[in-house]
């Protein structure tokens, strides 16, 4: 029997605590697959967020550090500066990276920290029950924008990938989605490139991963996937936003 698909080794064999249809599980599976393919599990340290994936450390057979809300890039900086030969990645949601932690991720990118950051964008604050996030789309109804996001009063959605690409320290910025197998394969390639950016010392790498949130959007998983395709991707275009081929990095 040839194995077409199996759980990656670094992903621990226990059920995910995420909602049905949430793409945290997909994103984390892809990260585990890439870590296995690159053979770096022994030297990889993850830094987790506060949010739906606060228990991320339960699912990876890796050393993990849990930090305060939004501060993962700063914690990861502390870890990487202490252990420059290890591979350090951070994993955050909308609130963590684009609200409370915006200063930390911007400066992490600006310094060209040799870490790999993952941003799961579901256009709401998931864990706390679906409030408006910096990434909420205009007109989108959430528990703190019950009439729909009014850009005159509540501003505009945040394009974090494009913003971080401005920093000279950013070497690889990509935005992906996981709504069908083709996009999943593309996403996995971007995740691998993001890790290699760190390993080859090119600079800071970030992959923004669009995700459905069926529970807080009030949709079935299939409807939520369609909402990512029809509403989110037009606003948050997929692709490699920045690719720096060579790095002049001395971190």
């Amino acid at each position: 029997m040839r194995t077409i698909f199996e759980r990656p080794k670094t992903l621990i064999d226990k059920p995910f605590t995420y909602c049905p249809g949430c793409h945290h599980g997909l994103a984390q599976r892809l990260i585990a697959e890439v870590i296995d393919e690159l053979g770096i599990a022994e030297k990889t340290i993850g830094v987790g967020p506060v949010g739906c994936s606060v228990y991320i450390y339960e699912f990876f057979d890796l050393d993990f550090v849990m930090g305060a809300h939004g501060r993962a890039p700063a914690v990861a900086t502390g870890v990487k500066r202490s252990l420059p030969d290890q591979v350090v990645f951070s994993y955050q949601g909308d609130g963590d990276i684009a609200a409370i932690g915006t200063a930390e991720i911007v400066h992490c990118a600006n310094r060209g920290e040799l870490i790999t950051s993952f941003f799961v964008n579901n256009a709401v604050f998931g864990m706390t029950g679906g409030q408006m996030a910096p990434t909420t789309l205009p007109g989108q109804k959430t528990t703190t924008s019950p009439l729909g996001r009014n850009t005159e009063v509540q501003g505009f959605p945040f394009k974090l990938g494009e913003m971080l690409a401005q920093a000279d320290g950013s070497a690889y910025i990509a935005r992906v989605a996981l709504t069908n197998p083709r996009l999943i394969s593309q996403a996995k390639r971007c995740i691998k490139k993001a890790f290699l950016t760190q390993i080859e010392k090119k600079g800071f790498a970030l992959v923004e991963i669009l995700s459905p949130c069926p529970t807080n959007w009030g949709m079935t998983p299939q409807e939520a996937v369609r909402w990512v395709e029809e509403k989110m991707i037009p606003y948050f275009p997929l692709g490699e936003i920045k690719v720096k081929e060579s790095g002049s990095h001395a971190s």
Binding site: T3, I4, R7, P20, C22, G25
Partner: peptide, 12 residues
């Protein structure tokens, strides 16, 4: 590939 819970294994 699309299963968010890694609940499916496939062999041939």
């Amino acid at each position: 590939q699309v299963c968010p819970d890694v609940a499916i294994s496939v062999y041939r």
